[in-house]
Amino acid sequence: MNIFVCLKQVGARDSALRIAVDRKWVEDEDLNFEMNEPDAFALEEGLRLKEKHGGEVVAVSAGPARAASTIREALAKGADRGILIEDDRFAQADALCIARALAAAVGREAHDLVLTGLQSDDFGFGQTGVIMAELLNLPHATIVMQVQAEDGGLRVKRELEAGWFQNVSMPLPALLTIQSGINKVRYATLMGIKRARKKPLVTHTAGELGIDMAASQTVRRLYLPHKTKQTQFITGSGKEAAAALLEKLKFEARAL
């Protein structure tokens, strides 16, 4: 099975977020970068499918040059090779633009299965995989909790809302967006990290692949959300705060 796993490099969840001077993005130099967490589950699922059914896992990312480190991480975990579509503009690009780039890279090669995470931790569009399915003319399923290969196709368990699930079958090639928590993600071993240095990582520029970089949606302005409730903040040492909170819960909110 030729499996392509799409990865995004995003600012780490615990990074300090400072709105940039132009108010259109955050200050990049404040961020530590990491593999988008939902994508890590997609990578793990790809590696498990390869271990079971054979084939190859290719890690693909559209991003600035720094995104190569996320592809290397995937190679260290067991992906066979990597493809980076490099352009600084991908850092703030919308889902349609990123999906066009990823689909262009995947579409050049024989592919049986394309996997993405559910959504990104930065923009949170939750669209890249589904757009790719349309651009590559593949059947797809989203929010997938289990993948079984059967009869030249797939049977997957989709998560629906409020504790409901559904099984869906489809032929290959296909695209799946993977729900976080579907598996337990492996760590890279030292040996894996060493091996990753010798694995092929090809870089294309967006220009080489002829990617349309036009934005389909534009951030006008970033700002802190307005609060919907007036939060009373309780300060002091742990003990003081605990006592003050219980006092308020008993006599003010009457919640205890």
Partner: peptide, 26 residues
């Protein structure tokens, strides 16, 4: 900066490992 504070009636910006044992004790 956690968004949970947008909807909280009472907020304590602190290490939960300091506040929770104190709550249990109280």
């Amino acid at each position: 900066g956690a968004p949970i504070f947008e909807i909280a009636d009472y907020g304590i910006v602190a290490d939960l490992f300091e506040v929770v044992p104190a709550l249990i004790a109280a």
